[in-house]
Structures are given as structure tokens and as C-alpha cells.
Design a protein around this nucleic acid. Structure first.
Length: 423
RNA sequence: GGAGAGGUGUCCGAGAGGCCGAAGGAGCACGCCUGGAAAGUGUGUAUAGUUAAUAGCUAUCGAGGGUUCGAAUCCCUCCCUCUCCGCCA
């Protein structure tokens, strides 16, 4: 969400940035008139409330003095009618205005390159050399089915398409990767581990920007009277930890990491990545989330990106980093780097992490503030997050990059301690 | 799910239609006192919106509605916490 005053004063800039993002039919043109009538109603209703307050005190005085106050009471009944009338209008106007404001995406950072879609993303760097084989490498799902560690058929029976059943080595590798990532980020990168709820309320989804615009991407529970949504990423519950709170300045930056399963409806992705673990309704992810001072968020994004990259470096998986172009940038993001891991069977890089700086966009929606040193007024923090990493895709990448000619999967060296026999 | 008790500022806690943005205490900040500290003592100490404004105005006593000229206070719905019962991992 952008600040009302900012929108008011920067209609042209916003229109330009919407165009930059490739967004058509925005309702930004309706903003000025609605904003004006909201402010007109607001000042009228506040004036009337003030009148009501002072006259009510006069009523109290007269009653105390045993005097008649019927004339004032009658007058106030009329004032009240008008207040109610304006309040009703205000509700409508504010709802309209809210619709518009909530549908305006974040302003992209100056460094975001222009482009229509992911083909215009800019490669920032590559790491490692693409894995070579003395045989024809197989796709991870073939490997998993061949060695009976990933069962898509039975998962489909149990739950439907886009689910997987991991067995034996695969499920242990999945669990190991979660532990490895959490250990790395907590022990070496200074993050505090949290384990949040996997179902959240509508307010939380709205603060981080999934709602109201992207409800169709989410799973919603149906039994409960109240709305509870399955989280599509740990970003939602973790960013909302400080919703409607003001942090003392000494606390920043706050760095959290969290493992959670993630649930996505994948509406509109029919036919894409139907094979394998790449696009599932449920997948595991270790997420990194930061709350920072505004002036530090750009540097903190670079650091967060490096933290995520280190996972792949330690696993010795080749990858590249790209800067998302304007057309590929997410709704709430100001700037995003994607990390893409090398997938030998597809002979291409696939996204395995997305690291974003949201500026104060989510913080304003969620009321996440801090008090700058020596200042009386609070300000909004900047929020950042990134996958560190998507676990299912990491498992897929290990399968493909570490496959042996006999169809077995070698364990990356850094994970060896996790595979020791315990019993 | 059933029965009951609650939710007030940083914290504890009073307040039961108007004099309440809210007593009192603790904490914190600044000052006095002191060789220094403690104790004592004085003053100050919510947030947000609007605004050029730390002036004014408006809102906020869990959330949302209602009654009333006027609601922290009365009524309704919901959320959360605690105790007991039931169910459950």
C-alpha cells in the first residue's frame, strides 16, 4: 500500500510506474475525485462531531442546574442524522478508495530493468559450472520413480494432481535439507528460527499483499465460520509477527528464518511443469524474513541474497542470479532477485529462491513501525524476504545434479553428517 | 462443544452514562537533594489521522455494530485469555 498523500501528489509518477510494470486498466484515474470527497466528508463529519461534543457538555451543565435542555437535544438529533448520513457516504467512498489503493502495486526501485516478462530478466552472475555426465542424465521425477523414492501416482490417489509422496531416501533428504538450511541460517547468518502457524487470518494475508487481489492463488478452509487461509509462504505469518506493533529502534534489523510447508492453488498454471516436484500444491520451504530501517534495506537485500546463495554453494549446485525486470516483479515487491539452480535434465536454470525488498509497502499495510532514534514520531520499517531455499526444488536439483549412472543419488558432502546412522 | 470469570495506557490497577484520554501506583526521562549512589522529593511521560504546526480538531479503554443529546461504562455479535467439564494429538 502506498501512502494516500503520496498517491495524491504523484498521480503521474504512479501512472508511469504502472505502465513500466505493464499493468493496464488500473483505476488510478478515479483516485483524485474519490480522495477529494473523502476529505470533504471527513472534515464535515469531524466538525459536526465537535459540535455534538460541545453541545452535549452544555446539556450536561443545564441538567445539573435543573434547567431544560430540550431545544439542544432536538438540535443534536438533527446534527446526528447528518453525521450518520455522512458516515454512510464515507463508508462507501472509503471502500472504493481502499479498493483502488490496495490494488496499486509497489513502486519499483530505480535499478529495476524494464521488460515485459521473465525473458527480460537480467543475469547478474553465475556460480559453478553446469554439471557434466558420462551418460544421459535423467529428470528427477524419473529417478525418483525408478528408485521408488518419489511416488506421484499414489500421491494423486491420496490427494490429486500436483502432490508427491516421498519415501525412504527422498523423505529423509527433504528433512535433512530443512535442518541443514535452518542450521546454516541460524548458526552462521544470525537469523532466529521461528515456527509459525500454517493457517492465517484475512488480516495477515492482506498485510503482505496476497489479499485482496490474489485470493484465487490460495487455499481457504471451509469448515470454520471465520476465514482461515493456508499459507502460500512463511513470509505471511512471519512478516505479520509485528503487525500493528512499534519496534524499539535498538531491535532492528530483526532477522527470522522459518521452515513451513507452503500451499498454492496454482490456478492458471494448468499444463505447466506437470511432471516432477517443480510445481506442487504443497511444498516445503525455509524462508528468510527481515525487518530493517529504511536506509538499510538495500544493503540487507544483498546480504539476504548472499545468505540464500550460500546454501547452493555449500551443496555445490550450480546456479545463477537474475534481477527481475519490471514486468516480472511481484505485486508487493520493490526489487527482486531470483536464484535459479541448474537442472541438467531440462538443460536450463529453474527458480529456487526469490529474494525481495518490499520497502515500506507491506509495513504500511500491516502497521509495522519502529521509532527512529531521538524522534517522537514512528516510521514504517522495511520488510524483506527470500527463500533460503525452496526445499522440494532443492531436492529435485540434488537428484539431477548428483545422479549416478546406476540411478542412485550421491549425497552432497556437506550433508554427510546428517546421514550418519543414529540407531 | 458446554459452564463460568475476564480483556482499560510500558506494566499493575481504579472507573459502572456527562466533570474520563481516562484516578492511584510501578517503571521510565529530566531536575533537586548527595562526595557518589540508594532513599527522599518535584516535574513530565499513549497512539494514530488531519494540518505548515510538538496550535487546534477527530478517533482510539479487545474488534465490529446498536441504544442515547452524550458510552470505557448499557445492549448485541465476534475474537482472545484464564478456570472447570467434554472431546482430542
Amino acid at each position: 500500500m502506498l501512502e494516500l498523500r503520496f498517491i495524491r501528489e504523484n498521480i503521474e509518477l504512479i501512472t508511469e510506474k504502472l505502465e513500466f510494470r505493464g499493468i493496464k486498466n488500473s483505476r488510478i484515474g478515479e483516485f483524485p475525485a474519490l480522495d477529494q470527497s473523502r476529505r470533504d466528508y471527513l472534515s464535515e463529519v469531524e466538525g459536526l462531531r465537535n459540535k455534538r461534543k460541545t453541545v452535549s457538555q452544555e446539556v450536561a451543565k443545564r441538567k445539573k442546574a435543573q434547567e431544560d435542555a430540550e431545544d439542544l437535544i432536538q438540535e443534536m438529533r438533527q446534527v446526528n442524522d447528518r453525521i450518520k448520513e455522512i458516515e454512510g457516504l464515507l463508508v462507501t467512498v472509503e471502500a472504493d478508495l481502499q479498493d483502488i489503493v490496495m490494488s496499486i502495486p509497489n513502486m519499483p526501485h530505480e535499478s529495476v530493468p524494464f521488460g515485459n516478462d521473465d525473458s527480460a530478466n537480467v543475469e547478474l552472475r553465475t556460480w559453478g559450472k553446469s554439471t557434466t555426465f558420462s551418460f544421459e542424465p535423467k529428470a528427477h521425477h524419473e529417478l525418483g520413480e525408478d528408485n521408488d523414492t518419489i511416488d506421484f501416482k499414489r500421491a494423486a490417489k491420496i490427494a490429486g494432481a500436483r502432490f508427491a509422496l516421498l519415501k525412504g531416501f527422498a523423505s529423509r533428504l527433504e528433512r535433512t535439507l530443512i535442518n541443514f538450511m535452518l542450521d546454516l541460517h541460524t548458526q552462521r547468518h544470525g537469523y532466529t528460527e521461528v515456527l509459525p502457524p500454517f493457517l492465517v487470518n484475512t488480516e495477515s494475508m492482506t498485510a503482505t499483499g496476497q489479499l485482496p487481489k490474489f485470493a484465487e492463488d490460495l487455499f481457504k478452509t471451509g469448515l470454520s465460520e471465520r476465514d482461515l487461509w493456508l499459507i502460500p509462504t512463511a513470509e505471511v505469518p512471519v512478516t505479520n509477527i509485528f503487525r500493528d506493533e512499534t519496534l524499539p529502534p535498538g531491535d532492528l534489523p530483526v532477522k527470522y528464518c522459518a521452515y513451513t510447508p507452503c500451499f498454492r492453488s496454482e490456478a492458471g498454471s494448468y499444463g505447466r511443469d506437470t511432471k516432477g516436484l517443480i510445481r506442487q500444491h504443497q511444498f516445503d520451504k525455509v524462508e528468510l524474513v527481515k525487518f530493517t530501517r529504511p536506509e538499510e534495506s538495500d544493503a540487507e537485500l544483498d546480504a539476504l541474497l548472499a545468505d540464500a546463495e550460500e546454501v547452493l554453494q555449500l551443496l555445490e549446485l550450480p546456479y545463477r542470479v537474475v534481477t527481475l525486470c519490471s514486468g516480472d516483479l511481484g505485486f508487493s515487491a520493490r526489487k527482486t532477485y531470483d536464484i535459479e539452480v541448474w537442472m541438467p535434465a531440462q538443460n536450463m536454470y529453474r527458480e529456487i529462491s526469490s529474494c525481495s525488498n518490499f520497502g515500506d509497502f507491506q509495513a504500511r499495510r500491516g502497521g509495522i513501525r519502529y521509532r527512529p532514534e531521538g524522534e517522537k514520531k514512528s516510521a514504517f520499517v522495511h520488510t524483506l524476504n527470500g527463500s533460503g531455499l525452496a526445499v522440494g526444488r532443492t531436492l529435485a536439483a540434488i537428484y539431477e545434479n548428483y545422479q549416478q549412472e546406476d540411478g542412485t543419488i550421491k549425497v552432497p558432502e556437506v550433508l554427510a553428517p546428517y546421514f550418519e546412522t543414529r540407531f
